[in-house]
Nucleic acid binder design. Structure first.
Lengths: 156, 156
DNA sequence: ACTGATATCTCGATGATCGAGTCACAAGCG
DNA sequence: CGCTTGTGACTCGATCATCGAGATATCAGT
């Protein structure tokens, strides 16, 4: 149980280093690269939604998207459903780039998992899914987190 | 195989949000909190070693350690083995704080794993261990990463 | 002793990020 | 239909963390 937590800590630390290296080699920032990956898997999104996903303010997302757009990786399109908002979509070039990024990551992960049998791999996937959902849920539960961390005062 | 990579992406994304929330509630930055966790599990370390672990320059580590020291979470001690360097160690208060942080994280992870049987959990731990080692190794292999990402130009 | 490498810190400058304010549009109300 | 409230994106000024380079001290090997 705590075994898994320790391993996860190491995986997250390794992922940090991995993402930094990837972003540096591509000449991008880590948040920008994270945005690209989210766009690949989630489809077109508004700047505000991306900002929430990456954990920055919408003001920062504007600047990051400016950089990505200047580099030709994304474009802003009008949102037919809501004329206030903008849909950020990957360009073919951006899609090709992030596909390559994720393919390399997938290959590295597969190399790391070794030769586990498919049933075990499926089980691991199920467990990881539960963990990510729980962590995501907790990350937005300020009240509960503050309580469990032993903080009496509420916000900021 | 790619199944695991997708799950890991979600786990890392959730961890990002989780760490941001934790740091914010504690009145610390994410890098500072990361330093505390590393100190808990790895024992006293030099500023340079911590900087490498967290992925910042030693100059930034100096400022982060200043903040942590000011808050009373760590102290700098002379290194008997090398008088150039400094050993950063947790204060009792800092140790208590980061223990609480990790205990909460562990509980959340355990809640996320659900009621998997011990054998499966052990297998998951083994696989995660392999993945973190592979990612760590790759993160420091600029040459190979650049090649696999399809970049001809070498450095920076 | 000397040389090159390493560790830490300081300092100035750069740059990203944030908060507040602005404008445009949406949705719900009477 | 007007009116009000809420939401989305952007701009701007200011702040703050981070970086690169330099200075100092120490180590290790010749």
């Amino acid at each position: 149980m705590s075994e898994i937590a320790v391993r996860l800590r190491d995986v997250v630390a390794a992922s940090d280093a991995y993402r930094q290296t990837t972003a540096r080699l591509l000449g991008l920032g880590v948040p920008e690269t994270t945005i690209l990956v989210h766009l690949l898997h989630d489809g077109p999104r508004t700047p505000t939604a991306l900002a929430r996903r990456v954990g920055v303010t919408p003001a920062s997302a504007t600047a990051q998207l400016d950089r990505l757009e200047l580099a030709g990786h994304v474009v802003r399109q009008a949102n037919p459903r809501d004329r206030r908002s903008v849909l950020v979509t990957l360009t073919p070039q951006g899609r090709a780039l992030v596909s390559r990024i994720f393919a390399v990551f997938s290959a590295d992960v597969a190399r790391g998992t070794g030769d586990a049998d498919p049933a075990t791999v499926a089980e691991v996937g199920r467990i990881l899914d539960g963990v990510s959902q729980e962590l995501e849920r907790r990350a937005h539960d300020d009240r509960g987190m503050a309580r469990d961390l032993g903080l009496h005062s509420s916000n900021r």
